[in-house]
């Protein structure tokens, strides 16, 4: 039987209360959201917080809404809600593509957006999605609110800029007109973590020139889950399948995958290119309004 080491349990009643509890208990305290990454780590003694602060009652962090020019998503939004959201399906089908292949439906009932990106597992799908989309991460402490770009949010494997007395409260994604987005993942079996995955968005002007593009990569050692060289190769240029193939090759070249039980490094690098290509092709179809 796997049991976590003993800890003290506190249930936060509001964001302010959670922040006060984090301050009171110091760096040995951790928030628990869905618990689907943290509790397994605690069972394996890979994490051993002395105090767990349960933020599941913070229903005011569970929303997906259009807010000005952005879509604002609360950190406690569950995977299942991201999968079924009509707002995200309309503006960013990349979320639906990714969520369909994140874990299984039961895990998706508990795991949260905030927990996913704060876990910062190199194989976490939503980290690559936020990086591709150029999302803004909204972080709160008792001092106030600060925002960090998704590409500065992760400081390394399992590390983010969120301090011990801070909470990620919201993820914001700018709404872009004439935009298409998509996510492509290869896993070994249904519900498993990615061997590799790639996601992107692109926007086009009426002449077919790429006005903006973002490419995210999962599980292949891409710094900050993104592929800036591949983006630069597309941005400002006319879109074509040759351009997509060339950009995908640049994305693959920028990866640094590790050989592990999910596959050898060269296979993962190959997948990074192939999945970037497929995601760009699908995003293009969507940007042109030609398919779902």
């Amino acid at each position: 039987m796997q049991t976590p080491a003993p800890f003290e349990y506190e249930r936060a009643t509001s964001v302010d209360n959670a922040l006060a509890l984090l301050e009171r208990h110091g760096p040995e305290a951790r928030v628990v959201a869905g618990g689907h990454s943290l509790l397994p780590m605690m069972k394996l003694r890979l994490a051993g917080p002395e105090v767990l602060i349960d933020i599941n009652d913070l229903a005011d962090l569970d929303y997906i809404r259009v807010d000005g020019d952005d879509i604002a998503i609360g950190a406690m939004t569950r995977h299942a809600a991201l999968l079924s959201s009509p707002v995200l399906a309309e503006h960013y089908p990349i979320f639906r593509d990714a969520e369909r292949v994140i874990a299984d439906p039961v895990v998706r009932n508990r795991g949260t957006f905030g927990g996913s990106v704060c876990q910062a597992d190199p194989s976490e799908d939503l980290s690559a999605v936020t990086s591709a989309l150029g999302a803004t991460m909204v972080i709160r402490s008792t001092e106030g609110v600060r925002t960090v770009s998704a590409r500065e949010f992760h400081t390394g494997p399992y590390e983010t800029v969120v301090g011990p007395a801070e909470i990620l409260v919201e993820i914001r994604v700018p709404i872009r007109p004439a935009c298409g987005s998509a996510y492509e993942k290869v896993d070994r079996r249904a519900g498993d973590w990615a061997v590799a995955a790639g996601g992107c968005f692109l926007t086009l002007d009426t002449g077919g020139t790429v006005t903006d593009v973002g490419i995210g990569l999962t599980a292949v050692g891409a710094p900050h889950f993104c592929a800036p060289e591949a983006e630069a190769a597309l941005r400002g240029h006319p879109i074509s399948d040759e351009a997509i193939v060339a950009a995908a090759a640049k994305a693959a070249a920028a990866t640094n995958p590790a050989t592990d039980q999910r596959g050898p490094a060269d296979y993962k690098r190959h997948l990074a290119g192939e999945l970037t290509k497929r995601a760009l092709r699908r995003a293009l179809v969507r940007a042109r309004g030609e398919g779902a």
Partner: peptide, 15 residues
């Protein structure tokens, strides 16, 4: 009413 894996939920969280 929603399926959840009870090996990954603390009893305290179900309170």
């Amino acid at each position: 009413g929603v399926p959840a894996k009870s090996c990954t939920v603390l009893a305290a969280m179900a309170g």
